[in-house]
Design a protein around this nucleic acid. Structure first.
Lengths: 202, 202
DNA sequence: GGACTGACAGATATTGAAATCTGTCAGCTG
DNA sequence: CAGCTGACAGATTTCAATATCTGTCAGTCC
């Protein structure tokens, strides 16, 4: 008898099926076939196809989160950390897009299927930006009166370089130049930024 | 006998047909029907359906270009002009998106059909940003060693607030707050920005 | 008796034949 | 004869019949 069927094994098989067939064609039956079980068995571990897809996506995003964490260097200046972090995120997404466009397209679709998933992903990464900015404020390298809001602004200002909707622009030969220009503008802004309060002031 | 059929009349009718049927369903036959002529006549004025769609789109974009031009105030500071200009562009697109979502979706499709059209539109608007920044540099309000590149960076950093791919986010109640945060960051950056040269330096 | 199967109902996707559309052009019309 | 028509060929879209898929569950098998 084969090993017992685990959720983890199903996730691995699902990722493989998605890679092979793409998000539109991949079916639960395909996953079951790849595992040599009936598709009913898959439903013992995941209540719906959507839940299965979401679990695969979370796995993939978690790997990115861990990887991004490792870019930070406690010794470096906040500006250098922010630059390196943004560059790494850009490189990661761009490489994924040019090297394995079908897999990238697959995850682009998966991420857009749920409201919770992008929220989870963006929340996590904006949190990492907030930590970088926070360190910068402590050393007086950066100025801001609302770290969370500023972190979100940095994220928003760099969307062209990580949002999948802009992936087609990443093939442009001048894209690295455009990236440097935006990041320089943002870092310069952080050194002197004082965002007026959202809801009103004197 | 009716008036002679003009290119302008065809454009007006095409816009109406697009508004009514949407970009997927609108046909040249529909346009001809609306004008009370045979569809062969439309082809005397526009060589292909694509050319007709492109002409309609250019008309629509030109109206935006003229409108954006009128926002600038020679008396105001460069920062105020930039803020007002970006805010107007954002409001224009957002209102169009919520008030007439089908028409907005239509033009979103039309713009994405051609490579030349977005280039034309973006080139024009980035040119307007460059003029604002240029004025700011002259009064020493802004610092930059490459106006064109910086203008492009300002455009890129604010994509979330004008690129149609992000239109769904414009319904978020905190979107104006996010806009203010990004614009403040960008304006702060312009006051002190010195982007390192693209191709290398000392 | 807990894990799995396979048959089933309703929902979704595929397919290919029929209908429509695009772009052309010879000829009509004022 | 300049501008328009309408019939036409090939490309594209529509639609309905057919096949497949999702999610359930009574029953089988260690």
């Amino acid at each position: 008898m084969a090993e017992a069927l685990t959720g983890e094994a199903i996730l691995v098989a699902t990722e493989e099926v998605l890679r092979r067939y793409g998000p539109a064609k991949a079916t639960v039956v395909d996953v079951a076939k790849a595992l040599g079980v009936s598709h009913g068995s898959v439903y013992r571990h995941f209540p719906t196809k959507a839940a299965l897809r979401e679990a695969v996506t979370r796995r993939w995003l978690d790997a990115i989160h861990v990887e991004m964490e490792s870019v930070l260097d406690a010794e470096a200046s906040a500006a250098d950390n922010l630059r390196a972090w943004l560059q790494h995120l850009f490189d990661r997404k761009r490489l994924s897009h040019v090297d394995e466009p079908e897999l990238f397209a697959t995850f682009k679709v998966l991420v857009s299927e749920s409201r919770a998933i992008p929220e989870y992903h963006i929340g996590h990464l904006v949190g990492q930006i907030a930590r970088i900015i926070s360190a910068g404020v402590e050393t007086h390298e950066f100025v801001t009166d609302d770290i969370q809001r500023t972190a979100q602004a940095v994220w928003d200002a760099t969307q062209v370089f990580h949002h999948p909707a802009h992936a087609q622009e990443w093939g442009n030969p001048h894209i690295q130049d455009a990236f440097d220009a935006v990041v320089s503008l943002v870092v310069a802004g952080l050194r002197y930024n004082r965002i007026p309060s959202a809801t009103g002031d004197a």
